[in-house]
Simulated assay, not measured.
Amino acid sequence: MSFFKKLKETISRQTDAVTEKFKSGLEKTRNSFSEKVNDLVFRYRKVDEDFFEELEEILIGADVGVTTVMDLIDQLKEEVKRRNIQDPRDLQSVISEKLIAIYRGGEEFSNELNMQDGLTVILFVGVNGVGKTTTIGKLAYKLKSEGKSVVMAAGDTFRAGAIEQLEVWGERVGVDVIKQNSGSDPAAVMYDAIQAAKARKADVLLCDTAGRLQNKVNLMKELEKVKRVIEREVPGAPHEVLLVIDATTGQNGLSQAKTFREATDVSGIVLTKLDGTAKGGIVLAIRKEMNVPVKFVGLGEKMDDLQQFDPEQYVYGLFADLVETAE
């Protein structure tokens, strides 16, 4: 059975709505990346060094990342020898197979949130403008639709409008927002939010934080203080630290991510605006260079467009036409 046919069967066992979200959300990347790969395999009569050089350029152009691309090309060359592949068209399914294998990295990364029996505390970090507050609102909507009781903490007390933005989301979703005045101590906001979440017997507390990178020392101290307060009030918390990255910033987003990893223990990535870029390969670069799972991806503007990341759905989104016609 071909890899694309197996992938088609895997996808068919999941909901059509999720499949359509990944297909439409990755349209820009697919139109750029897949079309170039298709053109490449039909232009070449055999798999040779020139073929691999062009494929390398296509992958780097999709923001897969130089290190990841080199590893992928080496693996493809080994597979070509092992399977005695002559026709470049036979490589399309092998490329897809290897993309999934690279993401998994020999270990099963969980894309599930680390939910607790009592209060689950999730801390969001990331620079301003990446869609952090919007992501919190969308996750609140998702969790509430799953029957969870949710409270949000407006911990970004430095950015003008951040508190109001979270309040707007609170009203839209029907979730309480715990806040203080602009300029307040973020750790004090977290303390109040935890007490409020406990009093309401909430299942989940979603915590916003400031995203200043201008002074890394202050950022780290602030995050450390916030985490200390959370851990003191809820032992073992925060149960997740989700780093929000704007997919449209590409490799720049990756360098921001590394700064936040120095400041706090990131347990998962939320990649926003994936629908707005042709460089969706950043998913693989993040996995390879940060060794942290992508837990959610933003695939549109709607309330339900924040989707749990799934490697098979991702590769389907890149090669939808080939998967759907697989026999």
Score class of each variant (00 low, 15 high):
Gln307Thr: 09
Ser34Val: 02
Val18His: 04
Leu26Glu: 04
Gln75Gly: 13
Arg30Asp: 02
Lys46Asp: 03
Ala140Leu: 10
Gly268Arg: 04
Gln92Arg: 15
Glu312Asp: 15
Asp246Tyr: 07
Leu123Arg: 04
Arg89Ile: 04
Gln180Asp: 03
Ala320Gln: 11
Phe109Pro: 08
Lys288Glu: 14
Leu213Lys: 10
Thr133Glu: 07
Lys138Pro: 08
Leu242Trp: 05
Gly253Val: 02
Thr67Ala: 15
Gly170Leu: 08
Glu312Gly: 14
Lys288Arg: 15
Val94Asp: 01
Val41Asn: 08
Lys8Gly: 08
Leu299Pro: 01
Ala237Phe: 00
Met303Thr: 08
Leu7Cys: 01
Glu97Asn: 12
Thr120His: 01
Ser96Leu: 01
Ser12Glu: 10
Asn215Trp: 04
Ser149Pro: 00
Val37Glu: 03
Asn252Gln: 11
Val270Lys: 09
Asn114Ser: 15
Val150Ile: 08
Asp265Cys: 01
Phe158His: 07
Ala197Tyr: 06
Asp321Arg: 13
Tyr191Arg: 09
Leu7Pro: 01
Leu219Phe: 09
Ser2Glu: 10
Asp305Ile: 03
Phe3Ser: 02
Met303Ser: 05
Val173Asn: 09
Met1Val: 09
Met190Phe: 09
Leu242Val: 03
Lys295Ile: 00
Ala326Cys: 00
Gly137Cys: 04
Gly65Glu: 10
Ala101Ser: 15
Leu284Phe: 11
Ile163Arg: 12
Glu231Asp: 12
Leu55Asn: 05
Gln313Lys: 15
Arg45Met: 07
Ala247Glu: 03
Ile60Gln: 13
Met220Ser: 14
Phe22Pro: 04
Gly61Thr: 07
Lys148Trp: 07
Gln307Tyr: 06
Ile245Pro: 11
Ile11Thr: 06
Gly281Glu: 05
Val66Lys: 06
Thr157Leu: 02
Gln307Lys: 11
Gln14Trp: 02
Ala237Lys: 02
Thr209Gly: 05
Ala17Glu: 15
Gly137Leu: 04
Glu312Thr: 08
Tyr316Ala: 10
Thr157Pro: 01
Ile282Cys: 03
Phe4Asp: 01
Tyr314Asp: 00
Lys138His: 06
Met115Gly: 05
Leu271Ser: 08
Phe22Thr: 03
Glu49Tyr: 01
Val121Tyr: 08
Ala237Arg: 02
Lys142Trp: 06
Lys302Val: 01
Thr134Ile: 06
Phe319Asp: 03
Asn291Met: 07
Ala193Trp: 07
Lys132Glu: 14
Ala193Met: 06
Gly268Asp: 00
Val80Met: 11
Val204Phe: 04
His239Gln: 10
Lys225Tyr: 01
Leu318Gln: 08
Ser2Tyr: 00
Ile11Gly: 11
Asn38Met: 14
